[in-house]
Design a protein around this nucleic acid. Structure first.
Lengths: 69, 69
DNA sequence: ACTTTAAGTAAAGCATGCTTGACATTTATA
DNA sequence: TATAAATGTCAAGCATGCTTTACTTAAAGT
């Protein structure tokens, strides 16, 4: 799953640690999500969306295949 | 986290097993999410949103407190 | 009443999300 | 160049998401 965290941070001049603080997660969690090591949980995705005041879909981009079935 | 899965299913006359099949997860997973036992992962939430053709926020409702900080 | 279908629930196990602590690398700045 | 700030990464451990198997309960149709 792609995400725009790095850009959204840059627009606000926030460090990964800044964002981590605001979201109440560890800095490593932000780093891992930005680097695509794993996806955030849904509750964390909601928190991100609220912080940036935009829909989840405007921040995270799903790239899983469409069904064949 | 509240969700409208049960209603969305009912509108389409789908069983939990039907929905599970369409989402490629187990029936128990659908049951657990509907009963609020846990939240779906973000990828699964995206899959649900695509299936019902509506934004994640129209299906799942976050109810975590706003920051005091 | 019987049968079937749907929904609920539980346990064990594996995969993923997130934590802390520590250390390495990169980037900016004195 | 030296120092500090920001980012990257790893390991161990705990919490959550999801699986399979299996059983129970509820609802619906015969």
């Amino acid at each position: 799953m792609k995400n725009r965290l790095k850009v959204l941070r840059a627009e606000r001049d926030w460090t990964q640690a800044d964002l981590a603080d605001k979201l109440e997660v560890s800095r490593q969690t932000i780093n891992a999500i930005e680097k695509g090591k794993y996806d955030p949980s849904l509750p964390l995705a909601f928190k991100v969306a609220r912080l940036f005041e935009m829909p989840i879909e405007a921040i995270f981009e799903d790239e899983t295949e469409l069904e064949v079935g």
